Amino acid sequence: MKLSWFVHEPVDTETANELLSRYASRHIQTRKTLAADPRLWLVSALLPHSEWEPRQDRTYQNSMWE
């Protein structure tokens, strides 16, 4: 599976630290860089990437409803 960097929109320091701790708990590599606005941070995470979208769960779907 391919890995690619996902970059969050600029966030404040508190939110950036929360994102970093959540990713760290899942053992995901992250980066925190200063945004163009010095009050905000960009948080990047190295996440798995697939060429195909996930299949839709059809557990509770009836063919009559489609």
Rank of each mutant, 00 (worst) to 15 (best):
M1D: 03
K2G: 04
S25R: 14
S4V: 13
K32G: 00
E9G: 04
L20A: 09
L42A: 01
K32C: 15
E9R: 14
M1K: 07
I28H: 02
N17P: 05
P10S: 02
K2T: 07
S44K: 11
L42N: 14
E53K: 12
T15L: 14
E18S: 13
S25A: 15
S63E: 03
E14A: 15
R58G: 01
V7L: 04
T13D: 11
S63G: 09
L19A: 02
E18G: 08
Q61M: 12
Q29L: 12
T30S: 09
L42W: 07
I28N: 00
W52L: 14
M64N: 10
T13K: 10
W41T: 04
Q56T: 13
W65S: 15
H49S: 12
A45W: 05
T33E: 15
L40K: 10
E66Y: 11
V43Q: 05
R39I: 00
W5C: 02
N17Y: 03
L46R: 12
M64A: 15
H8M: 10
A24N: 13
L42C: 08
T30D: 02
R26D: 07
Q29Y: 10
L40A: 06
L3Q: 06
L40H: 03
S21I: 08
D37G: 02
E18I: 10
S50I: 00
A45N: 01
A16I: 01
R22L: 14
W5D: 00
D37E: 03
E53H: 08
H49G: 01
D37R: 09
E53T: 08
N17A: 12
L20W: 00
R58M: 14
S4E: 06
R31G: 03
E18W: 03
K32H: 01
E51D: 13
Y60W: 13
W52D: 02
L3F: 15
Q29I: 08
I28W: 05
W5S: 01
E51K: 08
R31L: 15
S63W: 12
E53N: 06
Y23C: 01
V11G: 08
